[in-house]
Design a protein around this nucleic acid. Structure first.
Length: 256
DNA sequence: ATGTCACCTGGTAGGTGA
């Protein structure tokens, strides 16, 4: 069983690439972030035509998430229950008995900004809700664009980025609070190539110079951790013409 | 060195967010 996450930075622009990627990587579920589509514009039929059911939660211009799956998702939840949020950032559903939570975590902009305060509040709410979800669904994956580089080895220039957005102690502590729930960073279960990133800025020829951050993650619950057979970042779509600035992350689970 | 992209409003550019 395979699950994946990909920040597509506008599904309107990237739909052909997502369809191509699914054809080459027929995962059981794929969560998307930054669809940037209102719900009426979601291309459900295009996914249905290639054998994927879809659930989505979007808004105009910003944010927007979706859950694509071979088997229709059950018990679908949009955004964090009890957390009043105008921004469409979470989609969750149960696929083949596995609770899949897809999140587009707030960027935070800068550590001294109002957006950072919102990011922390959002992360607090996510933590408490994920805790409850894990109790209800022992088989759980939390995946998405976390907008957090958990450690210095997830940053191409940790000195330059020290204390900057994605790398602040506060954000890293929030990531560790999620780990503290018993979740495991699937990517780090395996030896990985050094300088493995999931995002490269569009500016500064960052991809060509491999100057990136690992901010897209797949965390798995204790019941699933022994079943993780592989986890990797697929850089190929970042080499497309008109790529997203993020690459997909894929996890493979052995049969339960 | 800096080098972008997507989308909005309101226009044939500028602003915002990432």
């Amino acid at each position: 069983m395979k699950f994946a996450t990909w920040n597509v930075n506008s599904l309107g622009v990237r739909l052909p690439q997502v369809l191509d990627w699914l054809a080459a990587n027929p995962v059981d579920a794929l969560v998307l972030q930054e669809t940037k589509l209102t719900d009426d514009k979601f291309p459900q039929a295009d996914f249905a035509a290639v054998g994927y059911a879809a659930q989505w939660h979007g808004q105009k211009t910003y944010n927007g998430v979706a859950l694509l799956s071979r088997a229709p998702a059950l018990e679908v939840v949009r955004n964090i229950p009890g957390f009043d949020d105008e921004q469409a950032r979470v989609i969750a559903g149960t696929v083949d008995g596995v609770r899949c939570i897809g999140g587009y975590f707030p960027n935070g902009q800068a550590p001294d900004s109002d957006k950072f305060v919102y990011k922390m509040r959002w992360l607090d709410a996510l933590h408490d809700w994920v805790q409850a979800e894990m109790a209800a669904h022992p088989q759980l994956v939390l995946m998405g664009d976390f907008n957090v580089a958990p450690e210095d080895r997830d940053v191409y220039d940790p000195v330059a980025w020290a204390g900057q957005i994605h790398c602040t102690p506060e954000e890293r502590a929030q990531f560790q609070r999620l780990i503290g729930l018993g979740l495991t960073d699937a990517f780090r279960l395996f030896e990985q190539p050094p300088k493995s990133w999931s995002w490269w800025d569009y500016r500064n020829l960052a991809f060509r110079k491999n100057q990136g951050l690992r901010i897209d993650h797949i965390l798995v619950s204790p019941a699933l951790t022994p079943r993780v057979a592989a986890c990797s970042i697929d850089k190929l779509p970042r080499k497309n013409e008109r790529p997203s600035d993020h690459a997909p992350v894929v996890v493979e689970l052995t049969a339960g």
